[in-house]
Design a protein around this nucleic acid. Structure first.
Length: 146
DNA sequence: TTTCTTACA
DNA sequence: TGTAAGGA
């Protein structure tokens, strides 16, 4: 029977990295990272013990996004705003996936294609909603059981 | 060695 | 933003 996927879709990237690593990983200087934090564009976790900044690994994605937008010519303020919106959109998608996706069936391991079970439209479970991920085309269909 | 803050170019 | 200075 179909089961709730739950945490299978939410990777717990609870890795903590220092400012040096984050800088090397993103190509953004430590000076910039401290400044961005001061401007509230990014945040670090305070472990209380040392005054050294520590960052959750998710911050790597945000810093990378800001840098990419910055390289495209956006101002720091605009880049940070867009990066935050992108992050929020991804978060909303994750919530949706975790709440609605019931199971993911792999049908073609080679091409990574399959179907996504998304529950039923009615109580008597006669109309099943399935997301089809096929080659070059993906869509949602309602499979009706007689 | 690495990171921190402050201050100046 | 980069860099120097002087401490953790």
């Amino acid at each position: 029977m179909e089961q709730m996927l739950g945490d299978k879709f939410s990777l717990k990237a609870d890795l903590i990295i220092g400012i040096g690593d984050l800088s090397n990983l993103t190509g953004v200087s430590a000076r910039q990272l401290r400044y961005w934090e001061e401007k509230k564009y990014i945040e670090s976790v305070t472990d209380g013990k040392s005054s050294a900044r520590k960052y959750k690994f998710e911050m790597f994605y945000k810093v990378r996004a800001i840098k990419l937008l910055l390289d495209e010519g956006l101002t720091l303020a605009k880049a940070a705003e867009q990066a935050e919106q992108q992050r929020q959109k991804v978060e909303i998608c994750k919530k949706f996936v975790n709440a609605v996706f019931t199971d993911v069936v792999i049908e073609d391991p080679e091409k990574v294609l399959g179907k996504i079970m998304m529950g039923y439209l009615d109580e008597d479970q006669k109309r099943k909603v399935v997301g089809i991920v096929a080659e070059g085309r993906s869509y949602i269909e309602v499979q009706t059981k007689k």
